[in-house]
Amino acid sequence: MRISSLVSWSLAAVSAWAADSNEDYKSIALRTHSLSQPYLDSDMQSRWYDFGGDTIIRTDHYIRLTADRPSQTGWIFSRVPLTATNWQIEVEFKIHGKNTLFGDGFAMWLTKERGQQGPVFGSVDKFEGLGIFFDTYRNNRPGVAFPFVMAMVGDGKTTYDKGSDGKANELAGCSARGIRGAGVPTMFRLTYFQDKSLKLELQYKTEGEWVHCFETTEPPTLPPAAYLGFSAETGELSDNHDIISVAVSSLYEPQSGDKATPGNRASKSSHRLGSTKAKKSGSWLWFFTKIFLVILAVGGGYFGYTAWRANKRSHRF
Rank of each mutant, 00 (worst) to 15 (best):
residue 59 T to H: 04
residue 250 S to N: 09
residue 102 F to W: 13
residue 16 A to Y: 04
residue 234 T to M: 10
residue 198 L to P: 01
residue 213 C to L: 05
residue 83 T to A: 03
residue 139 N to C: 02
residue 155 D to A: 09
residue 228 L to W: 07
residue 112 K to T: 15
residue 59 T to N: 02
residue 298 V to L: 12
residue 129 G to I: 03
residue 293 L to T: 03
residue 295 I to H: 03
residue 175 S to T: 10
residue 232 A to Q: 06
residue 276 T to V: 08
residue 34 S to E: 04
residue 261 T to H: 07
residue 129 G to Q: 03
residue 300 G to S: 05
residue 233 E to P: 01
residue 260 A to D: 09
residue 196 K to C: 07
residue 14 V to I: 15
residue 315 H to N: 07
residue 35 L to M: 14
residue 169 N to H: 03
residue 287 F to R: 09
residue 175 S to G: 12
residue 292 F to H: 11
residue 86 N to Y: 00
residue 109 W to V: 05
residue 33 H to V: 08
residue 158 T to W: 08
residue 243 I to D: 09
residue 265 R to M: 11
residue 287 F to W: 13
residue 117 Q to P: 01
residue 37 Q to M: 15
residue 37 Q to V: 11
residue 22 N to I: 00
residue 150 M to R: 04
residue 289 T to C: 14
residue 220 P to Y: 13
residue 67 A to T: 14
residue 214 F to R: 02
residue 251 L to E: 02
residue 230 F to S: 04
residue 12 A to I: 00
residue 230 F to K: 08
residue 232 A to G: 06
residue 51 F to Q: 06
residue 99 N to M: 12
residue 13 A to G: 11
residue 267 S to K: 12
residue 97 G to H: 02
residue 265 R to N: 14
residue 7 V to F: 11
residue 203 Q to T: 13
residue 145 A to K: 15
residue 92 E to W: 10
residue 266 A to G: 13
residue 149 V to R: 04
residue 9 W to P: 01
residue 157 K to G: 05
residue 312 K to G: 02
residue 144 V to T: 12
residue 143 G to C: 12
residue 253 E to S: 12
